[in-house]
Design a protein around this nucleic acid. Structure first.
Lengths: 383, 383
DNA sequence: GATTTTTAGTGTACCGTTTTACCACATTGA
DNA sequence: TCAATGTGGTAAAACGGTACACTAAAAATC
């Protein structure tokens, strides 16, 4: 059986005929200069958009010569001279974490748009691996770095590479102790505030919060956001579970954080009085909780409401689909790239913080709390 | 509440005191030569392991000088001279797809181990984006390329960059029409064969297969594997649904393939006679099917068994957890890196195919088929 | 009209490696 | 003793750009 439809035709897009793409015989700036009967300097000026030093005629002559020869400046040479490569180093615990994956994806897209390429480093939060990577940056001429969710337990770490232009996504500017640093963050406290607010409006009064160890800025801030929001509603904020077991993000680099959620389920079940709703540090943990509750016969959202943070693509996937707080990933990625490439006018200042507002995404894992009698664990009907 | 446990202490790992890491004042090969009282040539020979040209004494002198100055050769200069960069270009539709994400992660790890860095390009299967990236490779001095799941509909595409050392993961060597190409693949036909075998052993006789359009090698081979295996068991192989609607992998670059599974559910439900089990092209589609069936009241595995392929980390996450056929991702990644860096001894040959064996991972989405009467759609009990 | 400023260019010394060609000296074999 | 071979080393020309210093002509200013 074939379902009808079209599979868009693709043209083959071969390179322009006659213009060899082989590395061997690429045109150099000298070839262009000769072809256009101008000096190499002028071609160089052209390539660097210094048009004010060029007459209209030479300009067009150079342009046609470049087009004809399919000239592309040798980046290695350029970089050797200028000391800078058009490359952004991207340091991330692990792209296997779906939120990180989406962030890396969006950063790469934004970088390409800006004419930069991306050097990827999955550190697995291994200091040796990260140090090795960072140490080689200078040798490769990379001067721009974006780091995602760096540890807040190694505060002076990046100061060894203070000559880099660094932007940290999910980090506290003061934590990293750099003379100059830009950060890009979600308003983490507001995010959890929205979650609490949503649950409160549904009628929940006993709300728990689950996080793995507070090794990053977001983890710290979301927990404090939870406490603040609960106090604001005059609710008990003591049911915050900080899981400090071995499956911490330190070991797994966020890659299998679902396991953390799985692991947390028993701790949450042991809470007394039993909460009617749980806010998870992120979607992965939320999904781990969800899966474990379901196989333990605790119905979601009937017996327990669950809400996550991130709105990674994965959260649409669960059954029931996860209610969550969205981070505007693309916007944050663009901001990070922009910040790292165009550092603030005043070079002396200590950097900037760019903060994005979260958004509540209501799906199917939150409902009104049941009467107390009904909150008991009940067997699932199916199977 | 704080669950007890330890959060491993981390030392700060600052760079060696006295050895500045700043790009500004890095030691050059000249500095080393001066410090060791030898010529630059000798240092260069040392750096390139040409020890036969060095006496033992000069050798140690150079070694200590290098250590003292913390010398790292400037890659841009090296590359300008040699024309080659220690960089592997990694072309992938989108790392948001969890299988691709894991593959990219593993390739990056393997590359680092080999002393290479990785340039990432998410093409979103956009020919313009991909061409742009590839065209710049020569300018950057990159000579090694790994591409994941390239389209088989653009057969001559890569021939424009025939000077690159190319390895394709999930591709047919003949399809790409390159003079020289190494491929790394799962034994796709065997994978689906294992799935059919597993379902057959459980008692299933009406088995459907769901795939999106056959735009990659794996899609072609898995479908043919399905047909072969069904014929081998003397079963009807006509229930193969090839979804050719707009949400094809072409548009979404595998990123949201769950939607494809969602979309396919209605087509599968319309099949007559109704199958008792479905094999999905991959885990993403399987999970999409699973989620849709569940919200439509079709119980899995009671009413319908589902099995995927890949064993991406995500497949452990669903409820019930997905039975699937595992690809040995790390091994495949290592093989790809190895192949791309050490092309076969005989440079004249047309390349090699490395094929990996799949592995059945039994979880909870496959069961014995029910009696016919029970296969009807039934309303869920919960909510 | 003399002087300054602007415009539109050019020549060339680098950037930090690799590599080729070459050299001095020691050893060997005939 | 002489040529051949090997050993350990050096000098210097690239690689392909950039940017500084400079200039000649045109335009603007006083």
């Amino acid at each position: 059986m074939r379902v009808s439809g079209t599979l868009g035709d693709l043209n083959d897009m071969p390179p322009k005929s006659g213009s060899p793409t082989d590395a061997a015989d690429r045109a150099t700036i000298q070839d262009v200069a000769k072809a256009a009967s101008v000096s190499v300097s002028s071609v160089s000026n052209y390539m660097n958009n210094r048009f004010h030093r060029l007459g209209t005629e030479t300009r067009t002559r150079i342009a046609t010569a470049i087009a004809e020869l399919d000239f592309r400046p040798n980046q290695a040479a350029r970089q050797l001279k200028t000391g800078k490569a058009r490359v952004i180093a991207l340091v991330v615990p692990s792209i296997v974490n779906p939120f990180n994956g989406q962030m890396v994806f969006s950063i790469e897209q934004a970088a390409v748009k800006a004419g930069y390429r991306v050097h990827l480093c999955n550190t697995m939060r291994d200091p040796k691996l990260e140090k090795e990577f960072l140490d080689n940056l200078a040798a490769v001429g990379v001067a721009d770095l974006i780091t995602i969710a760096p540890l807040n337990t190694r505060r002076g770490y990046y100061s060894a590479w203070s000559d880099l232009s660094i932007v940290a996504v999910d980090a506290n500017r003061l934590d990293l102790k750099l003379a100059r640093l830009d950060t890009v963050n979600l308003d983490h406290e507001a995010a959890i505030g929205m979650a609490v607010e949503h649950l409160f409006a549904l009628g929940h009064r006993r709300i728990a919060y689950v996080t793995d160890p507070l090794i990053t800025h977001s983890r710290v801030m979301r927990l404090s956001g939870f406490k603040k929001a609960m106090k604001d509603h005059e609710l008990d904020d003591s049911q915050a579970v900080v899981l400090e077991r071995h499956q911490s993000a330190l070991d797994i680099a966020d890659a299998q954080m679902v396991e953390v959620g799985r692991d947390a389920a028993s701790d949450v079940a042991a809470l007394s009085p039993r909460p009617t709703a749980i806010i998870a540090f992120n979607d992965m943990i939320a999904l781990g909780l969800l899966a474990t509750f379901r196989s333990a016969g605790i119905a979601v959202p009937t017996d327990m409401s669950i809400i996550g943070v991130d709105d990674a693509w994965i959260s649409q996937l669960s059954f029931p689909a996860l209610t969550t707080i969205r981070q505007p990933i693309e916007a944050m990625a663009s901001a990070a790239v922009e910040r790292v490439l165009k550092p603030n006018a005043a070079p002396a200042n200590a950097g900037s913080d760019t903060i994005f507002l979260p958004e509540l995404v209501i799906r199917d894992t939150c409902a009104k709390p049941q009467e107390d009698a009904a909150t008991r664990v009940r067997k699932r009907h199916l199977e």
